[in-house]
Design a protein around this nucleic acid. Structure first.
Length: 801
DNA sequence: GTTCTAGAAC
DNA sequence: GTTCTAGAAC
């Protein structure tokens, strides 16, 4: 690299000196070169090179060593620099000087008699980090793991110098060649030589002004092979990129950087490289979502199909994300999903600036891999809880309890195909060490028979769910970008809803946040309802029409529950039941008829009794051909019976059709019979017979319940409201509706369970269950007219009616 | 379905 | 401080 051509004035000055016999001071003002650059950018090395090669006297004012070889203060540097200037020495201010304020005091040195230069080592952040992390024996003891954090923090404050700060000359170096050229320029400087004023090697100045926009445009700079520019500032505006790099776009910038540390998969990273001009800007400023491949690990989703979906979804979203970048992460260089995705993304010409793959630990992207991401995705479980292994366990573990609590605040569960954005508290180690600001939980479909809610190779449903999962994930990311002003207006509008959601979560009161979390939870509860409604679909639907979301609650009923069931959690429920429960076939997804079931393990007891009452002889009151009668294990009144239908496939009222009318009549008749039997014993009792619109226990059962509701087991709103709102369907009405329409009207809206508590007699409202119970213990008001009609209530002889 | 319990409500 | 509820856990 040839040194920069020197200004001819200098020679002229020499001649004048000879003629006029002026002192050496007049030859040229001393130069203060303020070095600007992050740790690891090579400032000290730069100075050392010049000092060694130059014929002039240069001294290096280094804050890291100024205190008798140890780190000193800025004030010491200034003092030392001032003294050196008095002696007419040229000097380097070797400290980071990363922002304007840091530089200001040094620019005041020596007044106008001193030339103020800046040399900006604006090298890729990754390179600086790599160097800092790897170096040993650093003067300032900035090395190893902490260096990465320091470099990063410093680069965030970076403020490139401008002439109007007081510099007469600024040289920008963006790569090793620039650095080499600048070293040569300063080394070659003779006693009377002066370097031209102005900015040299600066990238498009607008890039600084509108960093947010420019950094996402593809290579704004036009590479030039010239190395150092000539005296014309224009010509040296950018000179970093060699033809060699251009010819091999797969190479990461800076061949000299020891990239293996950064764990970048250089060899085969079609999508991994930063463009030659991306440098530190890219790394530091681009909002980046790192995400693992969803469902392909433990959930055993076919890799080929998954990679198709990843690329398809990336392609769909990559342009909606404005400045955002997506990075698919996997642990191993041998990752098949990464290579598949890379190949397919390359085929589709997806912009590698916006999507790349990365080999590394998703919890250590920055500290372990130098990849700066502000958002990571978690392959969550439905419970949104730690554990399970893989990415989920790793992320929860690395994030500490903060993530769990932040998650819990927002939602209690997650449906397949859905994502949940969780702002990560700044106290989380993942935030502190890795700079992660958000975690997006996402749940994908499961193809692993050993895991809950297996789709049994149904890739129609599976692919749909996986597509939805990625859409949800990327939308979540977009919502984060939009709140941070990264998205265009159009994009913002697109993600307005999610933005709203986010903003609420961030700014509103705790109560509101909780309410939203509750809504989400309620939403997932609702999906349970759907699940059951759609259950027939499961038996034969290959049309993929069913709502993926519906499956969310299949999972909870399986993974954990299967084992619980085997251990007989229902033992407590009813000792004699447990024996058979332990052998139950069908808490899993299929029963004998091949119909998928959505019932939890706790929900199977009645079904078992109905199917095999002889095994529960101690628990039942009466066994008939078509019904079984038993006491409710947790009676909500003095008398509370259940009349079970002994028909397979009749799980609840929703399953009831016209052909079941005789059975319903039989159930009603048996219920009445028992009510009358109790009335014989205690004529003050009043009974009501009916069904829950959406029962918790499997197998159609008729409640026969006395209206005293005098029971220690009646404990909460749900208990009360399930018997005292339209959620409770009177048997007489069900008979009528099924007779007329072939089905009963269901009132399975969740809202019934949270309705205000009203006395079933006088309709007075009460603030809580204890107060209500106290009230009903003495309220003798007559029942509402509606209940008195149509024999909905069953009274003792000579009463009511 | 129930039990347990944290935290809200009082 | 106690009561009560809602949600998690089972």
């Amino acid at each position: 690299m040839e040194p920069m051509e020197l200004d001819r004035e200098t020679s002229k000055g020499k001649e004048e000196e000879g003629e006029e016999g002026q002192s050496i001071i007049d030859k040229r003002k001393p130069i203060v070169v303020i070095m600007v650059g992050a740790p690891g950018s090579g400032k000290s090395t730069f100075c050392d090179h010049v000092i060694l090669a130059s014929s002039q006297t240069w001294i290096r004012i280094c804050q890291d060593t100024i205190g008798n070889g140890k780190a000193g203060t800025k004030a010491e540097c200034i003092k030392s620099a001032a003294n050196a200037l008095k002696e007419g020495k040229n000097e380097f201010i070797d400290r980071c000087n990363i922002d304007r304020e840091q530089r200001a005091d040094f620019l005041k040195l020596g007044g106008p008699d001193v030339q103020k230069h800046a040399v900006v080592l604006d090298l890729p952040a990754k390179l600086c980090i790599t160097r800092s992390v790897k170096r040993t024996g650093h003067e300032g003891n900035l090395q190893g793991g902490k260096a990465a954090a320091v470099v990063n923090r410093m680069l965030q404050k970076k403020e490139l110098p401008k002439l109007n700060e007081g510099f007469t000359r600024i040289t920008f170096c963006h790569n090793e060649k620039d650095v080499e050229a600048a070293i040569n320029t300063y080394s070659a400087l003779g006693p009377s030589d002066t370097l031209p004023s102005g900015c040299f090697g600066q990238k498009n100045p607008e890039a600084k002004v509108q960093l947010g926009i420019m950094k996402f445009l593809k290579k704004v700079d036009v590479p030039s092979k010239d190395g150092l520019a000539k005296s014309n500032p224009q010509s040296c505006s950018h000179n970093q990129t060699s033809a060699e790099k251009d010819s091999n776009p797969k190479m990461l910038e800076n061949d000299s950087a020891p990239l293996e540390h950064v764990q970048l998969d250089v060899k085969d990273c079609v999508h991994q490289e930063m463009g030659p001009s991306s440098g530190s800007i890219f790394l530091d400023s681009v909002p980046t979502l790192a995400f693992p491949s969803i469902s392909t690990a433990d959930f055993m989703f076919d890799l080929d199909k998954a990679s198709d979906i990843i690329v398809e979804k990336v392609e769909e979203f990559v342009n909606k994300l404005g400045g955002g970048r997506l990075v698919l992460v996997d642990l191993s260089h041998k990752s098949k999903i990464l290579s598949l995705v890379r190949a397919k993304a390359a085929q589709k010409n997806i912009d590698s600036m916006k999507f790349s793959t990365f080999v590394g630990d998703i919890t250590r992207l920055y500290s372990g891999g130098g990849l700066r991401c502000n958002v990571i995705a978690n392959a969550a479980n439905w419970r949104l809880k730690p554990g399970g292994g893989g990415v989920n366990a790793a992320i929860f573990s690395a994030a500490g309890p903060d993530l769990e609590s932040a998650t819990k605040e927002r939602a209690g569960s997650l449906a397949p195909g859905k994502a949940l954005v969780v702002p990560l508290p700044s106290t989380s180690p993942l935030s502190i060490k890795e700079g992660i600001a958000h975690v997006i939980h996402v749940l994908g479909p499961n193809m692993n028979p050993q895991r809950p809610n297996c789709l049994n190779n149904d890739y129609v449903k599976g692919c749909k769910a996986l597509r939805e999962a990625y859409s949800s994930l990327f939308e979540g990311f977009a919502s984060i970008l939009s709140t941070q002003g990264w998205l265009s207006k159009e994009s913002n509008e697109k993600s307005l809803n999610s933005q709203d959601q986010l903003e609420k979560n961030h700014s509103d009161s705790d109560q509101k946040v909780k309410r939203e979390a509750l809504n989400e939870y309620e939403g997932s509860k609702k999906s349970k309802v759907f699940l059951k409604e759609l259950r027939p679909d499961f038996s034969h639907s290959m049309d993929g029409k069913d709502n993926i979301e519906n499956r969310s609650n299949v999972e909870p009923l399986n993974e954990c529950e299967r084992e619980i069931n085997a251990k007989g959690s229902l033992k407590e429920l009813r000792p004699s039941v447990s024996h058979s429960i332990g052998r139950i076939d069908n808490l899993s997804s299929r029963d004998d008829t091949g119909i998928n079931k959505a019932w939890g393990p706790w929900a199977q007891a009645l079904y078992q009794i109905a199917m095999h009452p002889e095994r529960h002889i101690n628990d039942v009151r009466e066994i008939l051909d078509d019904v079984v009668v038993l006491d409710d294990l947790y009676p909500k009144a003095r008398k509370h019976l259940l009349v079970l239908a002994r028909v397979e496939g009749l799980d609840c009222l929703a399953d009831v059709h016209k052909e079941h009318l005789p059975l319903l009549r039989a159930m009603h008749a048996v219920g009445l019979k028992w009510a009358e039997k109790f009335l014989d014993e205690n004529e003050s009792l009043i009974f009501r017979l009916g069904y829950h619109s959406e029962p918790s226990l499997r197998q159609l059962h008729l409640h026969v319940i006395s209206q005293d509701f005098d029971s220690k087991h009646l404990k909460n709103k749900k208990h009360w409201n399930s018997f005292n709102t339209p959620f409770f369907r009177d048997s007489v009405d069900v008979l009528e509706e099924v007779g007329k329409h072939g089905k009963a009207t269901l009132r399975d809206d969740d809202s019934f369970h949270s309705m205000e508590l009203r006395c079933h007699r006088c309709r007075s409202a009460h603030p809580n269950i204890p107060r209500l119970k106290k009230h009903i213990s003495f309220c003798q008001a007559s029942f509402p007219g509606l209940l008195l009609e149509n024999n909905r209530l069953v009274f003792g002889p000579g009463k009511g009616g």
